[in-house]
């Protein structure tokens, strides 16, 4: 107990004594799916000691293979403390109690905000480069990201109308990351027309009457759920009959990082196909 306190105090002093940018952290632990992926893309070999268990789940993570080489954590203060990281990366949705507890134990925690637009993604990439001491890599990633984005978003008229429709009838508009992906791919979003810019439940009948050019459906998980049953509703099937429908591939849609460009590219192809169709 006393030893633990001394250790905590020692870590606290060490943290205070070191100027922030003096030296790159050597043992970095990430406890959030989105910081996991950004850190894996930017960190030096051997710099990461652990990622969250979600990073290894191929249904949620775009980097499950890379994450599979590292031990995982479940965001619990005890296991994180025992891994002795010198920097913990957390997301804005990480449990605040855990983050506060880790800070009291003298572990440096960097909390990254949720990215909902390009500016937010760029800011997080830049900041990840700073905290990992990998600024040159971050700058290179930004340059590549900007170039890819510019290539994907040129010449966008006419803009057809798309609707996102996910489990529980959830839809999202321009104030969400999913809405940004739709917008970047050159679509106007039905959720914005219907007053759901940051997301919400879209009544099935409002969706039907909005008559979108492209329906982007949430992915279906194994097992049965009523939340997902509505994706099979005969009325929705009738709407999408003879029309293109895209399915959201979650790993590219959840976190704001360069992987979203894969989702943008896929939707852009769907838009070009719509334009070329008679």
């Amino acid at each position: 107990m006393v030893g633990r306190l001394f250790l905590a105090a020692g870590l606290l002093l060490a943290g205070l004594a070191l100027p922030a940018a003096a030296e790159a952290p050597r043992r970095v632990l990430s406890m959030n799916l989105c910081t996991d992926q950004l850190a894996l893309m930017l960190a030096a070999p051997g710099q990461m000691v652990s990622v969250s268990y979600l990073a290894q789940d191929p249904t949620a993570s775009a980097m499950a293979v890379e994450a599979g080489r590292l031990p995982v954590n479940h965001g619990l203060a005890e296991e994180i403390f025992l891994a002795q990281p010198d920097l913990v990366l957390a997301g804005a949705w990480s449990t605040p109690e855990t983050v506060r507890l880790l800070e009291r134990l003298g572990i440096a925690v960097e909390v990254f905000p949720i990215e909902t637009d390009i500016a937010g993604i760029r800011a997080n990439i830049r900041r990840m480069g700073e905290v990992l001491g990998r600024e040159p890599q971050a700058r290179a990633m930004l340059a590549r990201f900007d170039a890819d984005l510019a290539r994907l978003t040129d010449g966008q008229d006419p803009r057809p109308r798309a609707a996102l429709y996910m489990a529980n009838g959830y839809s999202a508009g321009r104030d969400s990351l999913a809405g940004q992906i739709v917008d970047l791919a050159g679509f106007d979003n039905v959720a914005d027309e219907l007053g759901l810019p940051s997301g919400g439940v879209l009544a099935l009948e409002s969706l039907l009457l909005s008559d979108p050019d492209l329906l982007i459906e949430g992915r279906r998980y194994d097992g049965h759920a009523r939340a997902q049953e509505m994706l099979e509703h005969p009325a929705l099937r009738a709407l999408s009959r003879g029309k293109p429908a895209q399915v959201i591939s979650d790993p590219d849609w959840i976190c704001g990082n360069p992987h979203i460009l894969r989702a943008v590219a896929e939707l852009r192809d769907a838009r070009l196909a719509l334009r070329d169709a008679p």
Binding site: N168, Y221, H224, A225
Partner: peptide, 20 residues
């Protein structure tokens, strides 16, 4: 259930709904 959304259904089975 293996489905992450199945748990939301507890409310439906306890409280009932005719939506959709």
């Amino acid at each position: 259930s293996p489905n992450p959304f199945a748990i939301n259904e507890i409310v439906f089975w306890m409280m009932g709904s005719l939506a959709d």
